[in-house]
């Protein structure tokens, strides 16, 4: 048995493999509640992280020929990203617990030797109160770093802070 290969940073030139249409998870004709996820990534000096790859993965709705359930988007000079996807529903969690609708996020960038993993939850979801992952975070302010704000009828926004005040909760998975 061997151990997994070591990670190395994605570096500043990963855009060579970028295809901007990957930011639209509905491009293969997926049917469902279309939503927009926007956000920003900032560093410990509150400066925008403008060279990151943001990846999202959701276990609901299920992967299908029309829905890849995975997207990738670059951050722009303002550190902003934007995805179009389908609104996830609840999924099973440990034991009998239901997980609140969520989207898993990986942040890859120069200066990150390992990708950072976090989750996006949706403001005003009742299941957020009992979600088995959110419930692991006792501090209310820390927990709120994972909750995207509804900023338009179909749009949620999440600010991701890599370091410092209001640092986002990142997860070891």
């Amino acid at each position: 048995m061997s151990t997994a290969t070591a990670n190395q940073t994605i570096g500043p030139y990963w855009h060579l493999i970028e295809d901007p249409i990957w930011a639209d998870l509905t491009r293969f004709g997926a049917q469902g509640e279309r939503i927009v996820l926007t956000g920003t990534v900032t560093d410990g000096a509150a400066a925008p992280v403008s060279d990151a790859a943001i990846e999202i993965w959701q276990s609901s709705p299920e992967v299908s020929d029309s829905f890849p359930a995975f997207g990738r988007c670059r951050t722009d000079p303002a550190g902003s990203f934007r995805f179009v996807t389908l609104k996830p529903g609840p999924v099973p969690g440990p034991g009998n617990a239901q997980q609140a609708p969520h989207v898993a996020i990986t942040i890859l960038a120069r200066g990150l030797l390992n990708g950072l993993t976090t989750r996006l939850y949706f403001q005003d979801e009742l299941l957020n109160e009992t979600d088995p992952v959110l419930s692991l975070i006792e501090n209310e302010a820390r927990r709120s770093t994972l909750i995207a704000r509804k900023v338009a009828l179909d749009t949620w926004h999440l600010d991701i802070r890599l370091q410092g005040d209001a640092e986002t909760v990142f997860m070891e998975i």
């Binding site: 560093d43 000096a45 992280v49 990150l112 990142f170 997860m171 070891e172």
Partner: peptide
């Protein structure tokens, strides 16, 4: 300025 200072949450 890019590494998180808080311990990662094990889930």
């Amino acid at each position: 300025l890019r590494h998180p200072k808080q311990a990662a949450l094990r889930i």
